[in-house]
Design a binder for these strands. Structure first.
Length: 253
DNA sequence: AGCACA
């Protein structure tokens, strides 16, 4: 008996240590690092949607995402304080976003925007691994402007080639966050009134729509996508009956 | 898988 107890204790200790294996030496940070994001989503939309989904946890200072090979499918959301970041990390871990569960960790390092605010910012040339230090911004007389190709406005538009022939959405892409929720797995005896009682608790509620010929699903409309997102978070997985947990996603438009 | 500040 006491042996067993000792074993359990040892296991607990091992487990506690093992927990760190999920996020090795990364401690709390005001910035969360998200990966496993759907790489098919355009950056501007992705950042906007991340902001929509995460702003419920606190003020967001910045959302960063890049499309380079090394950084596809990843984003950083910078919160104003650590508490917001922690809450976001916990609550949104594994949240289905564009059909893929988000994987969230704390960022490994402090975001520039934070460092700038607290005075610890050091310009990047120091920490960039091997920056060709060609342009050290030397005080040479201004170099001949090379036909303007490197001007601030010379960058390629991000949409120079579209991944899908349709020019945008393709069949299996989930709907982007929007003001209308799509609710599934409802018990067949569920009525619009029952749903209204649940969904009208959240700000911006407008209406519930059900389709007679399609039992088990409903559409719930809010004033905007922030409001619909809050309701989704709150009611996701809500048990209507022992075998009916609501599955909520954004409606396709 | 991949931790940057375009």
């Amino acid at each position: 008996m006491s042996n067993a107890t000792a074993t359990v204790t040892a296991t607990d200790a091992a487990t506690a240590t093992g927990t760190a294996a999920e996020s090795p030496t990364v401690s709390a940070n005001m910035t969360i690092y998200i990966n496993n994001l759907n790489e098919k989503i355009k950056l501007e939309e992705l950042k906007k949607s991340l902001r929509a989904v995460f702003s419920q946890f606190g003020k967001i200072l910045e959302v960063l995402a890049f499309k380079t090979l090394k950084h596809k499918g990843q984003a950083w959301v910078v919160f104003e304080d650590v508490t917001s970041a922690s809450e976001a990390l916990k609550r949104m871990q594994g949240f289905p976003f564009y059909d893929k569960p988000m994987r969230i960790q704390y960022a490994k390092t402090k975001s520039d925007i934070i460092a700038k605010a607290d005075g610890t910012f050091v310009p990047r040339e120091r920490r960039r691994r091997h920056d060709e230090r060609a342009d050290k911004k030397r005080r040479d007389h201004r170099d001949a402007n090379q036909a303007g190709v490197n001007s601030a406005y010379g960058t390629m538009p991000p949409h120079s080639h579209l991944p899908y022939p349709g020019g945008g959405k393709h069949a299996d892409a989930p709907a982007a966050p929007n003001n209308i929720l799509f609710v599934e797995n409802l018990p067949h005896e569920c009525t619009p009134m029952m749903l209204q009682m649940l969904f009208c608790q959240y700000a911006g509620f407008k209406e519930v729509r059900m389709v007679e010929t399609k039992p088990g699903i409903a559409f719930v409309e809010y004033g905007d996508e922030l409001q619909s997102t809050v309701a989704m978070q709150a009611l996701q997985g809500f048990r209507m009956t022992a075998q009916n947990s609501m599955l909520i996603s954004y409606a396709k438009k």
